[in-house]
Nucleic acid binder design. Structure first.
Length: 262
DNA sequence: ATAGGCCTGACG
DNA sequence: CGTCAGGCCTAT
């Protein structure tokens, strides 16, 4: 479910709730979550980080608690332990807050990491980090054929998923099947600025809630009201019917007029 | 580059 | 019933 903007909203909103608190109790309700309570209990939480779609909880005593939400994962912060059908893990903090990991489809992951580098090695650059420069972007463009595959490749740019790939390509007026090699300099610039613009606007709108995304308070985001093509039937720019095609094994939405194939 | 698997729920 | 879903991994 969640892409970079949703995880960033989560990071921002959990930060004041978690930072400086001690993890006093850990219960893992789903054995497929391979976390040892001993690696977390009694440890104090430092300011939160995020890398792509991974939420990272650094611990003062060393190591990191890492959360990936998969498709339906949610982190809910409540003053009491609220029982939930799909609760998979629960962390009780020294403040009395209960942080619950809820995940109906069980694609989410929680794990303990000794070294931050282990995660960095398997992911590309985070588009919100200062390392994501136009020059870096240009060098990343080499090596993938199709534009949509490029945007979804977490080893190149970490954090873009299926909804924002469609939105970014629409904003840049680029067809998802265009080849990277065919891009002009101007189109490369448009793609670069569109990535940043769409992600930042989605964060400002507190993420996209179409189905499952919930903030720690239980509220949804608002960017679903600002989507241009994903799930839409008509182009907001020219009125042409939006096309839905399966590309990179996922539903892809685009305007055939604003985003010509060549 | 695509299909299938991992899971459950919502919707037609 | 069948189809689809903000992810990701593996195998053809």
């Amino acid at each position: 479910m969640p892409e970079l903007p949703e995880v960033e909203v989560l990071r921002k909103e959990l930060e004041p709730i978690l930072t400086g608190k001690k993890i006093v109790e850990v219960s893992i309700l789903d054995p497929r979550l391979r976390v040892q309570r001993e690696s977390l209990e009694g440890k104090t939480i430092l300011p939160l980080k995020r890398l792509g779609k991974y939420l990272i909880v650094p611990l003062k005593e060393g190591g990191y608690l890492v959360v990936h939400l998969g498709m339906t994962g949610q982190l809910e912060a409540t003053p009491e332990n609220v029982p939930h059908k799909h609760q998979r893990a629960c962390f009780v903090l020294s403040s009395g807050t209960y942080l619950s990991f809820i995940d109906s489809r069980k694609f989410g992951r929680i794990f303990f990491l000794e070294e931050y580098q282990t995660l960095q090695e398997k992911l590309g650059v985070d588009p919100l980090s200062p390392d994501f420069t136009f020059l870096r972007f240009l060098s990343l463009l080499r090596g993938t054929k199709r534009l949509k595959d490029f945007l979804l490749d977490q080893r190149k740019i970490a954090g873009i998923g299926n909804i924002y790939a469609s939105e970014i390509l629409f904003r840049a007026c680029l067809h998802p099947r265009r080849s990277v090699a065919s891009l002009s300099s101007e189109e490369k610039e448009r793609l670069f600025t569109s990535i940043l613009a769409v992600l930042k606007e989605a964060i400002a709108a507190k993420g996209t809630t179409i189905r499952d995304f919930r903030r720690p308070s239980g509220e949804g985001g608002n960017f679903q009201d600002l989507l241009s093509v994903y799930g839409k039937t008509q182009c907001p720019r020219c009125g042409t019917p939006i096309v839905r095609e399966v590309i990179s094994s996922r539903s892809t939405y685009f305007c055939p007029r604003c985003q010509p194939l060549r």
